[in-house]
Every structure is written in structure tokens, then in C-alpha cells.
Design a protein around this nucleic acid. Sequence first.
DNA 1: ACATAATCGAGACGGTACGTCCCGTCTTGTG
DNA 2: CACAAGACGGGACGTACCGTCTCGATTATGT
Lengths: 214, 214, 214, 214
Amino acid sequence: MAVAPASGTDPRERPARPPSGVVRPPGRPRDNRRDPLIIEATLAALAANGFGGLSMEAVAAAAGVGKATVYRRWPTKGALVADALATLAEPHEPHDTGSLRDDLVAVVNAVRRNNIQTLSGRIMPRLLAEKESHPDLFDTYRQQVIAPAREQVASVLRRGVAAGELKADLDIDLVTDMLVGPVSYRQYTAGSHEVTGTRISQIVDTVLGGIRAR
Amino acid sequence: MAVAPASGTDPRERPARPPSGVVRPPGRPRDNRRDPLIIEATLAALAANGFGGLSMEAVAAAAGVGKATVYRRWPTKGALVADALATLAEPHEPHDTGSLRDDLVAVVNAVRRNNIQTLSGRIMPRLLAEKESHPDLFDTYRQQVIAPAREQVASVLRRGVAAGELKADLDIDLVTDMLVGPVSYRQYTAGSHEVTGTRISQIVDTVLGGIRAR
Amino acid sequence: MAVAPASGTDPRERPARPPSGVVRPPGRPRDNRRDPLIIEATLAALAANGFGGLSMEAVAAAAGVGKATVYRRWPTKGALVADALATLAEPHEPHDTGSLRDDLVAVVNAVRRNNIQTLSGRIMPRLLAEKESHPDLFDTYRQQVIAPAREQVASVLRRGVAAGELKADLDIDLVTDMLVGPVSYRQYTAGSHEVTGTRISQIVDTVLGGIRAR
Amino acid sequence: MAVAPASGTDPRERPARPPSGVVRPPGRPRDNRRDPLIIEATLAALAANGFGGLSMEAVAAAAGVGKATVYRRWPTKGALVADALATLAEPHEPHDTGSLRDDLVAVVNAVRRNNIQTLSGRIMPRLLAEKESHPDLFDTYRQQVIAPAREQVASVLRRGVAAGELKADLDIDLVTDMLVGPVSYRQYTAGSHEVTGTRISQIVDTVLGGIRAR
DNA sequence: ACATAATCGAGACGGTACGTCCCGTCTTGTG
DNA sequence: CACAAGACGGGACGTACCGTCTCGATTATGT
């Protein structure tokens, strides 16, 4: 992780110097304002062309940065992309309205939105396509993006089990698949606007109640 | 579609000459044994590198054919790939054992196998990744491969409705998503061997009965 | 020597095919009309920037040829330049007017003209400057250009010795230096137009007669 | 000329402070011990790679100095090289043994030694090669190095004329060429060790006496 | 003593030139 | 006329390097 954490202040401002006593290398220090530019350009290029179609040159140009500046920070394309993917993790706030059904609808809706409106949602199919040649990249994506989203769904389900509302021996992992799977699969294979909030409610209700007559 | 239909005989054998009286263009006739070689090489290249990473040169080399031979048949890469994708359709035999649950398990298992063991299953993520730049290719794939598989599931569901075993107002399309989605999504995002036959049975049972306690 | 000898005919015309019975490699044969273009561009680049400053890319561009075409013929810059220098040899016609003095003036004038008006004369200082790093190139130049010119001077001197007009124990090599050296040195170090025909006559006369009073 | 004149003392010692009363700019004064290091490195780089191949970075590195230190003193590469060439002038002591022939041999020998054993002798071909693109540099070299050496030869010749030993209407410039030219041309084009003291004696004798039989 | 200000080595920065590699087109000789 | 083999022009990419710039540290000077 070569990327400095966001300082929370004006990004134009250079970060404060480290406390004295720290040994500093001689020469002009690296300008860390370049890092987020490069990372952003990398993610955009990844969404546009995938890993194989991503060139360091295009990243540098899009970031408005010399090629040497990129290579100075990340020696290989893989290292750059790995660091870029590591920044995709997003904080998820918990959902707890008291209604299990409403909470499930809310978290699955969050999955839906993340698939289509975010950069990471556009990156996913690219990484998926190259999973065989570069499994490590997709692993990183899974850990950073997919796993947290699933965990959010799973935590709601566990609350339902604890409250006695759901079967005590519920296979949480399986049911998570059954909530996330239809939404994601449909979105990716059928177009971005196919899955509406209404449909998600139907999915949740179906999983809760089944489809048998009476 | 420039591809000659499979003759059903030994492909090594040259097709018999048409009856005399038919006008034939002068010169050496085109050797149609080359076509399936090129199509196969195209699908393999598509699975390996996607559309963007597919080069006519690599296809020709893999097919053991000169580049000009490929270009003589298909003027562009798009035309070649479109024709190649059109050959992916596979015949599906109907499932009807009398048990709705067993039939659903069977058809979903067919989906599972098709995702991982066939060429078309390996091509899917590639086309998915390039859906934005080449939506027509993925449309072809959807019509040729995805739609028939879904239709198989849907037909079993419709039988269940007709038999009164399932709710009369069932949203067939939605439930199809709920059976196919979890399987495909899990397979593609989590690895090929994660989804077992047992798990598919659980999915079918959950969709049928729901997850509510009591 | 990968360069085909000049055919003497219209360079636009492709050379005749080799006699049948010669085995020919398959595929499109190399278009040997490209060779003289590349060689000419190489010599021009050599005169302009020397060996170190010569780039294969610039040569290809100047010749109106793809880079791969150059590398297909000559794998390295050194091989290309060596072949180019090998084409610099020019035929020298003998001088024999009956007058030793006039013949000497004529051959030294030929040296003078070759130094300033030809491509090889502009290439010489470049090779000279890089003699330490690439002695082989200058050696080639010396054999192809310098040695023949000196031999022309020497042959006239030998005729003078044989005719009894010059000292019998004359050091031909030394006197050749004394005729060629002042002209070349002056031209290269003082500018192109400093050495006139009159001056060359004076040099010849001085070498013949010396500078001592009476 | 930004170069401080040689102080004649130990160059390691910093120069004494100027007498008080002289206005001095505030801040850290420039350390003039760096200048000769940079000049030397420049001449060495010039001998090694010529003007075009000389980089300020390489000069700074060879001088053990930061790049900014070089640019603070000389704004351009041309200014640096011009100043470096201006330091090449060497003092020539007069030759006068009473024998014209011996004096000529001595001064021509001095030319010979200067061509091969000194830095300026190795720089000459580099500047010669770039005379067309940078005539000013070679002009400087000619004034600083070539002209003084020629003048030394010329002065001996003038003494010979004044003493009546040489023809009264002697073209001094021409004869200087005839003494210096063969030596320099031979050395540069044929290798460094080709011209011996014996050969120089022969050249002088030939110029003095001519080559005609009897 | 201490503030001031310019110099110093080191190295990051944007930009550029170059050789390698590869693609799609074109051009051969052969079947 | 089809076919393979491969030459051709063109372009994209990573490497290497250059001149400019910017940094912290140093070092004389003046108060």
C-alpha cells in the first residue's frame, strides 16, 4: 500500500512534515499529491479496458503525470493495480429499522446501487473476465468489495435468526447468495436498469415466503 | 452466416460435387473444411483473450490457416466473432419426471454444468466485460445461450403453475432469476467448483419453501 | 553485404527472377527496391549525426519505410552502417597525361573534390570522431574510400620514379601523405572553400622542388 | 568567462577574503573550487562523446557536483563548453637552436605530441565532426589551439626567410600546411602511433629539398 | 549568538526518443 | 481462383535519459 491515507483536509495542501528525528532521504521528496491522481486514472482505465488493456502510458497521460513518475512508485502494472483495487473498500453503515424485511430490502438495494453506479461496479466484469489469468486481482476485489457487501446482508440475516424470525438452522451463506445472486446476475447480464426497487422487494419476499401455493 | 452446416459425415471428406448442370464459378473452389477450424479457433481465442484481445493473426495461426483465408471469409473481426457466437446454441432436451422439485434441480444443474465445463461458459465473462464497448456481441450470446437455458427453467415452472403446485400469479421471469442467479453468480465470482449438486437442491428447496421459521 | 548490386537499369523495375531450379523460400519475397532507399538514408543520417546519433527509426522514416523492414534486413545498427559504408567505394579512372606534375595536380584535385562535394566527405569527420568507440567503421571507410584515393596518388608517383623523374629511393607512402595531408587537413579544419586549384598546384610544386633558396 | 583565474596556490585552499569595503552579496558565497572540477569534467566528456553527446547531467556527475550547481554557473550547454574550450590554450616556448631544420623538426614534433597525448587532441575530431552544426565551437578551438601551434611553425619559417635560408617569396601559410598537414592527417586517420620522430624529420627534409631526382 | 539568505547535493518531475513487438493489409509462388 | 507464407507500413508500449524544479542541509555574512 504505497498510497497515503486521505488527510481529510484540502487535497491541495501538502501534508505536514513528519516529526523531526525521523531520518529523511536526501533530495527532493516525492510529491504525494500525485498518488491519488494516478490511482484514480488506474481505476478508470481498469473499468474501461481491463487489466490486459491497461497501459502504464495511458494511466500516466490520464493522470497528467510523466511515465517515470508512475514507475517510480509502482514498479509493475500488477503492483499499481493491486494498490488501486485496495482503495475500493467502502464503509458500510449498518441497517436496523426493526423490520427484518425492510432491512433486507435496504441492504440488497445497496448492492444493486453499488453494481451500477460506482466505478467498482464497472471494474468487476473486467476482473471477472481475467480471473483465470490474474486470479490475485479478482481475489483482492472480492476481499475489498464483495465480501463486505455480503457480510452486510449476512448480518441482517443473523439478526433475523437471533430474533427467532428465521429458521434457526439457516445456511447464512446460501441465503446470502439467494439474495445477492439474482440481483447481480440480472444486472450484469441484462442491462443496468433492469432491476428496480420493486423487484428487489419481490425477491426478498420470495426468499422469505417461498413460491409454493398456500 | 458463411459457415457451412455440419455435414454429419467425416469432416475430412470433401463434399461431393453438385450435380452437373449447376453453374460453378471458375477457378479453384473454396475449401469449406477450413470454416469449422477457423470458428473453433475463434471461440477458443475468445475464451482466452476476449474480443479486444483477439487477433485475426492468432486465429489464423491456431487454425493452421493463412491470414488471407480468414479475411476472404469474414471481412472484419466483428463478423467472424458474430458467426462464431451463433454456433454456440445447444439443443436442450426437456425434463419431465413428474416431480416438480426434481425437474427444477435437474435444469438448474444443467445450467451449472454449462457454466463451467463448456467453451461458452468460459466465453461469457469475456463478453460481459466488453458489453459496454460491444453490446451486440453479448446480445448474440444472450439469445443463443442464456435465453434457451432460462426458457428451460421457465417451462418447468410453468408446468408447476399449471399443475396447481405453484402460486397462480407467479412471476416466472423473477423466479427464473432466483434459481439461475445464485448459481451463476456464485460460480463466476467464487470459483468453479464451489457450487455442488447438494447446494442446488438447497436453493430449489429454499425458493419453494422460503426461509421463515414455521 | 546484403545489398544487391545496382542493376544499372530503371530502379523502378523489379529485378528479373532468379533462374528456375533455385529453391525459393515460401511467402512474399523481400522487395529489394527498399534496400537502396535505406542505404541512402543511412548515409545521409551518418553524415548528419554520426553513428551514435543515428537511430534506426530516423533511417526508416527518411527512407519512407517501416521500422520492421529495416530490422528484417539488418539486425543491428552496426550491420546496417557497415553495409552502407561498403557502398561508398567509387571507381577511379587513371590519370596519365604524360606530365608528372599535371597528373599529380589532377589526382590531388580529385581528392579535394571528394572531400567536400560528396556524401563520403561529410561522413568522414563523423567516423573520425567515433574512431575510438567504433574503430571498425572507420577501418571500413579507410579501405573503401581513403585507400583507393591514396593508391591513385601513389601510382602516379611510382610512374615518376620509373621514368627517372623522381628520386629512385622515394618513400611513396610518405610523399602521398605530403600531397594528400595538407589538402585534407586544410579543408576539414579551415572550411570547405579554402583550398583552390591554384593552391594545389603550389603544393605539388613545393613537394617537387622544395623550399630552399636556390 | 565565468571561470575564476587560476590562483597559482593550492586549489584546495579557499581564496582569501577580499579587502573590507567591497560590497558583497548576502548569503552563502559561491564556492569557486567547483569551477575547475566542472571544466575538467566538461572537457573529458567532450573528448568522450562530443558536444551533441554531452549532457549536463553527466558533467555534473563526473565532477561530483549537483546539476543545479552547473546550471547556476552556465545557463546553457553551449556556454559551458565555450568556457571549457577557452581554457585549452597552452603556452608555447620558442625554439631557436640556430639550425632551421632542427627547429622545424622540433616544432612539428610539438604538434605531433599535442595531437595524441593531450585532451585537446582528443577533442579535436569531436568538434570537427560537429563543425557544421556548431561552427562557433570549432572556431574557438582553432583560435585557442590550432592557431598558436601554427604560429609557432610560421615564426620559425619567417626566421628562415629572414636569414636568407628560404626563398624570399615563401608562402608561409602554405608551407605551414605542408608541415602540419601530413602529420595531423596521418595521425588522425591512421592511428596514433604511426607518426614517429624519424618520419617528421623526413617530412621536414622533403619540404626543404623537394623530391625531384638530382 | 543568531537570524538571514544564497549555495550545495540529491532526486522527483514532465517530456521525449528509441527499439521491440504485433496487427491488418498486401504480394508473392504454388496447387 | 484459393491457399500458405511472409514482407510491408504503421502504431502502441516500456525503458532510459535529459533539463528543470524543488527539497532539506550547509555555510558565510551582518546584526
